[in-house]
Simulated scan of single mutants.
Amino acid sequence: MQDKFIKTVIAATASMFAVAPAQAEQGDLLVRLRAIMVAPQETHSHVMPLGDGSRVKVSNDVVPELDFTYMWTNNIGTELILATSKHNISGFGAETTTARRLGKLASTYALPPTLILQYHFNPDGAFRPYVGAGVNYTIFYSRKPSKALEAAVGDTDVKLKNSFGYALQGGFDIPVGKRSFVNVDVKFIDMDSKARLTTAGAGVLRVNSHIDPVVVGIGYGLRF
């Protein structure tokens, strides 16, 4: 699925480099709608207090993203990114581990508003690359245990600690009209959480997670 998504990004932008640019200027507001793939690059501690090597993994998701960039100068802008994605939390490890046998343990939505300061290298050109760095605050909501987990250990309450971290970004815009452009964007988000599953039959299960997603997107934008 990831390979197909990346090929779509390349195919959609390869034919657009010859389009005449419309200059981006100080005071412009750039509004983009992107399709993004959120791909966690996670590492996790063992599920405690289980002593059998049980770990967890977090699934990818493809969702829409809306962002707004205000250009303070011709080169410097601030971008606010809004999106939400759903992720399954599943057990893995050796086939004999408890988490692996249970499979899907829980699901959650992540709402990660992100504010990034950008530098645009070529704001009046036909190819406009930029880089950025900023901060992210991720809110985990609609947390639910899986049916398999509750069937095995009874009623379960799922809690995940919200995350605050940094964000890095790189991308480019290509004009396709006076005020319209296409966009390709890649972000890395520093995202950590502590998960706590309070079960009726197995006590309290805990795991520390470094989720750290890479977010790859392609979109269409308008300049106001």
Rank of each mutant, 00 (worst) to 15 (best):
D3S: 15
K4R: 06
T8K: 04
V9L: 15
A11S: 14
A22Q: 04
Q23R: 06
E25A: 09
G27A: 13
L29H: 09
L30E: 06
L30H: 01
R34L: 15
Q41I: 01
T43H: 11
V47Q: 05
P49L: 15
R55D: 12
V56Y: 07
V56P: 02
K57C: 09
K57I: 08
V63Q: 12
T69L: 08
N74F: 01
N74G: 05
N75S: 12
G77K: 01
T78C: 02
E79G: 02
L82I: 12
T84K: 01
K86W: 12
A94P: 02
T96E: 11
T96I: 10
A99Y: 03
R101I: 10
L102C: 09
K104S: 13
L105M: 15
S107A: 04
P113E: 08
I116N: 07
Q118C: 07
H120V: 09
H120R: 06
P123G: 13
R128F: 13
P129A: 10
V131R: 02
T138F: 13
I139W: 13
I139N: 10
R143A: 15
S146M: 05
A148G: 11
A151R: 11
V153H: 10
D155F: 13
K161L: 14
G165H: 06
Y166H: 02
A167S: 14
A167G: 10
Q169G: 02
Q169M: 09
I174T: 03
P175Q: 03
V176S: 08
R179G: 09
V182S: 02
V182W: 03
V186R: 01
F188H: 05
I189K: 06
K194N: 15
V204S: 01
R206Y: 08
N208Q: 08
D212H: 11
P213R: 04
I218Q: 03
Y220S: 13
